[in-house]
Simulated scan of single mutants.
Amino acid sequence: MTITVVLVDDQALVRGAMAALLDLEADLRVVGEAGTGDEALDLVLRVRPDVVLMDVDMPGMDGIETARLLRERGSAARVLIVTTFGRPGYLRRGLQAGAAGFVVKDTPARLLADAVRRVHAGMRVVDPTLATDSLIAGESPLTPREADVLRAARDGGSVADIAAAVFLSEGTVRNHLSSAIGKTNARNRADASRIANDNGWL
């Protein structure tokens, strides 16, 4: 039986390399490629592949949000998230969004093909180092609103800019920033954003 695969990554070179490697496997066939989350949604719902290999970090909608929307829209495709950055928070958020597996991009080709097969068979595949790091790091200490505010703060705008972006009052934004700084043991909001981002909480 042939397992059909869609590749989603904003770097064409990476997609091409993965497609070439997977097409060497007799039982795997790449049936489509997308460079953004929006493109992936349309493609997956139209092509209906068995497995989607999805990058996390993409312009616009990231891979975790795309996985969540695919599940909400009734896609039966199994999502295997592949990323350069093994951030522990990504694993937890990805699995909560409905992803069936999580591997890093330096996974050898043979193991990546095997991960596709295992995910297709209904199993969950998680990079062991990432799983260990995720257990050690624990869940994000941030509330959803604090995470929203830190995401908006990454662009370096003023409190007024952040408030406008997240539709909150400036006072509420200051409170969320202060709380997030405390929870991440950061020096300031830029440091809090960096720490939260490095842990995959944003």
Rank of each mutant, 00 (worst) to 15 (best):
E39I: 05
I162C: 03
R71S: 03
D27A: 07
S169I: 12
V79D: 05
V31A: 12
P128Y: 10
V6Y: 04
A40E: 09
V116D: 00
L7K: 11
A26Q: 09
R118Y: 03
R187M: 09
H176Q: 09
G60A: 13
V126W: 12
R151I: 04
S75V: 11
A186Y: 02
A190N: 11
V51R: 02
D114M: 14
A190Y: 09
R48D: 14
R87S: 09
L95I: 14
S134Y: 06
V173G: 02
A99H: 04
A147D: 03
G60Q: 13
I136P: 00
A115T: 04
M54K: 04
V30I: 14
Q96K: 15
L142Q: 06
A147T: 05
H176V: 01
R118F: 02
G138W: 06
D133Y: 08
D42S: 14
G122Y: 08
E146N: 00
G35M: 05
A17Q: 11
N175I: 07
D161Y: 10
N199L: 15
V119C: 01
E146R: 00
A76G: 13
T132A: 15
R187V: 13
N199I: 00
I181W: 02
I64H: 05
A19W: 12
I136V: 15
L21R: 13
F167G: 09
V119G: 01
L95G: 05
M18K: 01
R151H: 00
A67C: 15
T107H: 05
V82F: 09
D55E: 03
D133A: 14
D50S: 12
P59N: 06
V116E: 02
D161R: 07
A76T: 15
I81S: 05
D127F: 11
L53A: 06
A153G: 07
Q96H: 04
D127M: 13
L41N: 08
D23I: 06
A186H: 01
V52I: 06
G60Y: 06
G60M: 08
A97S: 12
M18Q: 13
S75P: 10
E39D: 14
M54L: 11
T132K: 10
F167I: 03
F102H: 12
V30D: 07
R124C: 10
M1G: 14
R187Q: 13
L22E: 07
R151V: 09
I3N: 12
A19I: 10
T66S: 15
L202I: 03
D50C: 07
I181C: 02
A153I: 06
V166F: 09
I3T: 15
L112D: 03
P144A: 10
A113C: 10
M1P: 12
L130H: 08
R46W: 01
L135N: 02
P49H: 11
V125F: 04
A40I: 08
R187E: 13
H120Y: 11
R117K: 09
S169H: 07
L95M: 15
A34T: 04
L53I: 14
P49I: 04
A165P: 01
P141I: 02
E39F: 03
L43W: 01
G156I: 10
S158D: 08
V149Q: 06
A115V: 01
I195W: 02
E146F: 02
Q96P: 00
T84Q: 11
R124H: 14
A180L: 02
A160V: 10
T36A: 10
L41Q: 08
L150E: 10
A26H: 05
L22R: 09
L28M: 04
D106P: 04
R145D: 07
